Amino acid sequence: MKYDMFTKEQIIFLTFASGCSNMAFNFIWAVYLGGRSSWIALAIGIILTIPFTFAILYLSRSYPKCSIFDIIQIKFGKFVYIIIVTINLAINIVLAVTILNFLAGTIKVYFLQLTPVWVIIIINVILAFLFVNNKILLFGRTVELLTVWYIINYFTGFSFSFFKEFDFRNIYPIFDTTLLKFGEAVFFSLCASSEILLFVIVIGGHMPQTVGCKKSIIKGTLLWAFILPLASFIMQGISGTELLLSTSSAGVEISRTIFFGDFLRGLEIFILATYQLICIMRLSLYLYCTWIPIKKIFNKKYSVIILLLISAIIFILSTRLNSYNKAFFISIYMDYYVVFPFVLVIIVVAFLGTLINKRGRVSYEKK
């Protein structure tokens, strides 16, 4: 058994988990732009990441055990590699800080009002550190189990509401916005879901070069393109667009209103667990996507120390920010102006590198 490679099944869940990012919290921006048609815009935007995924997979086909960052190092040298992975480090740290503030803010408001924010944050950082600081196969298995748990919680939290609270009058007419606003919602969805591409750029070094693994990435993307729009659709059907926009953690607020007599109440605990699982899965992948490329710059014996330092930086910055609202606007800015443009630049640079044959098509073996 190869412990340094993910399996095909794990790649499906890892790709899905990479989509369960800040978008699980800031998707209400798409609702603001697209209105009742936002769930359609979300699905289209996520699916639009697939052509970029194909581009990344096309680039890596001739370089076994190489990430896109590794290909750039092969073609342009270590100096360019250091610059790019340092930018990648900063991006993933900022994204990790925002999702931690999203979760801490939600727990603080709805469940643990007297618990210090730093306690909530450090627990999640420690768990993510322990998950990532493991063999690759075991890390993939952990994310796989967390993802299955997340999906079970998701359907448990909303299944009853669909039959009891859902009102199709909150959905129709579907297109209650202009074509321009709908297009903006689609573009935002594409930008926000491009965090999937940040993961695909790095995973090449731990993905067997088989057609099945590449199909697994597409399946994971399509799974997220189904789950998030469905969640938005159900929540709009229960509460209407206006109420959905007025709540910071819409899933928790909506699930609190669901009950059957006196024997079935408190479904918000399932949605809380869903948000918790989203945070821990994505935080683990932020650490993975940061740690794997950056540790190649240093001696292998320092890899655990590097992971520990990255985790400490995320913890310190998260406690310093300590604001749900600030995290929301930072995440929107990052999606529009940083993450998606960075991914495009990486793809373009890697394509230019493949046109440079002076160093030949050599395989880069991970140290």
Rank of each mutant, 00 (worst) to 15 (best):
V31G: 11
I254T: 14
K135V: 11
I294Q: 03
V119K: 11
K367I: 15
G240K: 11
V200G: 07
W291M: 03
P173C: 07
G34A: 08
E195V: 00
L285H: 12
L48C: 09
F187Y: 13
Y302G: 00
I136R: 05
F155Y: 07
Y154I: 00
K219E: 14
V338L: 12
P341W: 11
S284A: 14
I72A: 05
N92Q: 08
Y333W: 10
G212R: 08
S193M: 04
A273E: 03
P64D: 11
A128E: 03
S18Y: 03
S331Q: 09
T274F: 10
V132P: 01
P116I: 06
K8L: 02
A192H: 00
I122T: 10
T156Q: 06
L197W: 03
L179T: 15
G34F: 05
C279V: 12
F13P: 09
T156S: 10
V132A: 08
F166R: 03
S38Q: 04
F175N: 09
I44G: 02
Q73S: 02
G205P: 09
L244D: 09
P116R: 04
L100G: 08
L285V: 13
K164C: 12
A30H: 05
K75S: 12
I121Q: 07
N101T: 01
F188L: 11
I218C: 01
I217K: 04
I44Y: 00
L89C: 07
N26A: 00
G237S: 04
I93H: 01
F163C: 02
P173M: 12
F13K: 13
I12A: 04
G45L: 08
K295F: 06
V85D: 12
F129T: 13
G360M: 15
L344N: 07
I71T: 04
E184W: 01
P208L: 09
I174E: 08
S331I: 06
G220N: 14
Y81R: 14
D4A: 14
P229L: 10
T98Y: 07
V304D: 10
I40Q: 05
L344I: 15
G77I: 14
P116K: 05
A17P: 00
R61A: 03
F187H: 05
M334H: 06
D167N: 14
Y288I: 07
K164D: 10
I203L: 07
A41W: 03
Y150E: 02
